[in-house]
Simulated assay, not measured.
Amino acid sequence: MELFFYPELINGIVELDETEARHVRVLRKRVGDMLMLIDGKGHRSDAMIVELSQRQILLQLDNVEYFEKQSTRLVLGVSPLKNPDRFEWLVEKCTESGVDTIVPIVCDRTEAALKKTDRLQRIMRSATTQSLQYYMPELAPPISYAEFFRQYKAEKQLIAWCDDAEKQSLLSALPAGSNAAILIGPEGDFTKAEFELAISNGFEAISMGQNRLRTETAAVFAAQAFYLINQ
Score class of each variant (00 low, 15 high):
Phe5Arg: 05
Tyr6Asp: 05
Glu8Asp: 08
Ile13Tyr: 00
Ile13Met: 00
Val14Asp: 01
Val14Asn: 00
Leu16Ala: 05
Asp17Gly: 05
Arg22Glu: 13
Val24Phe: 11
Arg25Trp: 12
Arg25Ala: 08
Val26Tyr: 08
Leu27Gly: 04
Val31Ser: 01
Met34Leu: 15
Met34Phe: 12
Met34Val: 14
Gly40Met: 11
Gly42Asp: 10
Arg44Met: 13
Arg44Cys: 09
Arg44Phe: 06
Arg55Ala: 08
Arg55Leu: 01
Arg55Val: 05
Gln56Asp: 07
Ile57Arg: 03
Leu59His: 02
Leu61Thr: 07
Val78Leu: 07
Val78Ala: 09
Val78Thr: 06
Pro80Cys: 03
Pro80Gln: 06
Pro84Ala: 07
Arg86Tyr: 08
Phe87Asp: 00
Glu88Val: 01
Val91Cys: 13
Val91Tyr: 03
Val91Pro: 02
Gly98Met: 12
Val99Lys: 11
Val103Phe: 08
Val103Thr: 09
Val103Cys: 10
Ile105Glu: 10
Arg109Pro: 07
Leu114Tyr: 07
Lys115Cys: 12
Asp118Thr: 11
Leu120Met: 05
Met124Asp: 05
Met124Cys: 03
Thr129Gln: 12
Gln130Tyr: 05
Ser131Thr: 01
Gln133His: 06
Gln133Asn: 03
Tyr135Gln: 10
Pro137Cys: 10
Glu138Cys: 14
Ala140Asn: 00
Ser144Phe: 04
Ala146Phe: 10
Gln151Glu: 15
Ala154Leu: 04
Ala154Met: 07
Lys156Ile: 15
Ile159Phe: 06
Ile159Trp: 01
Trp161Glu: 00
Cys162Leu: 13
Lys167Pro: 08
Leu171Thr: 08
Ala173Asp: 04
Ala176Ile: 11
Gly177Ser: 02
Gly177Arg: 01
Ser178Trp: 05
Ala180Glu: 10
Ile182Leu: 04
Ile182Glu: 02
Ile184Arg: 13
Ile184Cys: 12
Pro186Thr: 06
Phe190Pro: 02
Phe190Asn: 06
Glu196Ile: 14
Leu197Asn: 11
Leu197Ser: 14
Ala198Ile: 10
Ile199Asn: 13
Asn201Glu: 09
Ile206Lys: 00
Ile206Trp: 00
Met208Cys: 02
Met208Glu: 02
Gln210Ala: 02
Leu213Cys: 02
Leu213Lys: 02
Thr215Ser: 09
Thr217Ile: 01
Ala218Lys: 00
Val220Thr: 09
Phe221Gln: 04
Phe221Met: 12
Phe226Asn: 04
Gln231Cys: 06
Gln231Gly: 04
